[in-house]
Amino acid sequence: MSKIKFGVFPAKNNGAKRKEMVFAPNPLSLSVPEPAFESWLRDSGYLEILDQRTTDLNRLPAATKPSNSAAAAAASDSAAPSISPDGVFFISQIVSGIWTLLSLFTFSPFSKLATDDFSGETPSWTLAFFGSAESYSFPSSPSQARLRVHENVKRFARNYASLIVLFLACSLYQLPVALLGLISCLALWDAFKFSGDRWGLDKYPVFRQTLIRVAQCVTAVILFISNVQMAIFCALGVSYAVMILHASFRKLTPAKQLDVRGGHKKTARR
């Protein structure tokens, strides 16, 4: 009795002398489409597998291109001088990398950010945030870059917020006039709040609103004269560029692994 594999049926041979057994297609033999499989990985939390899978899929065409170098070299002997296949491949890689970096500025990295992402504990700066040299790689496609940015911004939201404050403090340190203007604005509003509570300005809403408008105008003049907006713009610009580059080059690692490395390992309840 011949053995029949599960999921396929043997086709009729009609008296042919062939010894091989031909199997007819069976509708029970199903395969999962690529978009559905990627959606399942994303919904199940296996983002690191999806990240590595995207890199491997984009490396497949690159591995097959050098195999045609011999035929291209033979054809180049009889044809006019042209760019070698290696040069074309190198130029295409550069153009693809530039396009991937430019695509980082075409979407909002904060679209999936929630307030709960700032309520947890700050991941470790050494092992979780910076990691090692193996924790970084160039994104192979714009879709992979967007996936990394969205996930890493959620994971390292508190780290990026600390970097923004650090860059703002450094920019104000380089501009003492802007630092003095910012302190003056904070002192002005603190004095306004103290005076309002002491004099009972809540009983005079019209007069209170007039004082608020005057304080706003004075604050705008102080910020403009002391050039505080330039310091804030520089701090936000530098911190945004650092965040985008780090989030796009940082590989996605399992969230449980980050918790264990950061010293926040949770034990299951019995």
Rank of each mutant, 00 (worst) to 15 (best):
K193L: 13
F207K: 13
V153I: 13
F194L: 14
V177E: 13
S184Q: 09
Q229T: 11
Y160H: 11
L186C: 10
D197V: 09
Y173F: 15
V206D: 13
Y240S: 12
V214G: 10
S239M: 01
Y173Q: 09
Y204P: 00
V149C: 02
I225A: 10
L180C: 06
A161R: 06
P205C: 01
I212W: 12
A187H: 02
N159A: 00
I222R: 00
C170Q: 09
A145P: 04
A145C: 00
A220C: 09
L175M: 10
K203C: 02
P176M: 05
L223K: 02
K154F: 05
S184P: 05
M230W: 11
Q216L: 14
V206N: 11
S239W: 01
V228M: 02
I222C: 03
G237F: 11
H150N: 10
L180Y: 10
L201S: 11
F233S: 14
S195L: 15
F156V: 02
Y240E: 09
C185V: 15
G237T: 09
L236C: 08
S239H: 05
A191C: 11
R208P: 01
L236T: 08
S171V: 04
I164W: 09
L201N: 08
V214W: 10
A220S: 12
L211F: 08
F224R: 10
A231I: 06
C217M: 14
N227D: 15
L147S: 06
L163N: 09
A161Y: 05
K154T: 07
A157H: 04
S195V: 13
F167T: 12
E151S: 10
I164T: 12
G200S: 04
V149I: 14
P176Y: 01
T219A: 08
A231D: 05
Q144P: 06
D202W: 09
Q216T: 12
I183L: 15
A215V: 04
W199N: 12
